[in-house]
Amino acid sequence: MKSAENYNYAFLDEGSKREIRRCVLKAVAIPGYQVPFGSRELPIGRGWGTGGIQLTLSLIGPDDTLKVIDQGSDESVNAVNIKKFVRLTTNAEVTSDTRKATLIQSRHRIPEIPLENNQILIFQVPIPEPLRIVEPREEVTRKMHAEKDYAPIWLQLYESIIRYGKVTISTEYPCTVENRYIMNPSPIPKFDNPKLHMSKCLYLFGAGREKKIYAVPPYTNVVSLAFDDVPFERESFKGKKCRLCGSTDTYLDEIFDSETGERFYQCSDTSYCREVRLNAAE
């Protein structure tokens, strides 16, 4: 790939964009419901964020500023290559500043800075079906969603509590959207689950391999599954802080030094961490 002139604007043909756009509007109208779509071939293997990329390419325009993060990082290989690809075919502005971005494509994190109503967060989703772990057949899970038959997933949580005394799901923690659909919030850590609830921004979820799009509009009730006597709990980083910026209220990555045996912690959201350090330096 050398010149953007060889490609349609935003790579996808207009028919593909139109179909994805129709599905996005349906997904927004039915929060948490997985709308099937004809996932297109991309010059990236399925499973490397093709759902999120197709959403980004269908939404992006000349007025947009794009930010891409991978596990919170703006500089990881996946994020950098997606940015290069989108920029090549759109010439859109890219940024690592969360506040400047109008579109944010994310793999498995929600930025620490609260998002605004004019921003859209697009998730790359590997397995959109929250019931897949309890039911492998697609036709059955569709029927379970239709009948709001979520007993097996509640049973899974119950069994986890019986065995380990707590719910041991750390990512992809299922949540109920508008008291109707149980949704897989993509593999974000459960630390980020509360950010989905009554958020100001629009969340879009794209699963390219599984050919599903779903959404959480702004100001929508998103409640993580929990029992009355075993409430939902986020990861706790009590007593730990970021080794770089000193933050104690962010999601921290653990880094293990195999030579010294030391464990370090630092912010998963690199852009936020940099901003805190810059503000401190000023």
């Binding site: 207009e14 964009k17 756009r21 996005v24 509007l25 927004v28 939404l59 325009g61 629009l202 509009p217």
Partner: peptide, 13 residues
Amino acid sequence: TQRVFRKLLEAMS
């Protein structure tokens, strides 16, 4: 069409 779609998306959300 991209601009109209984004307006529709804003209105729908």
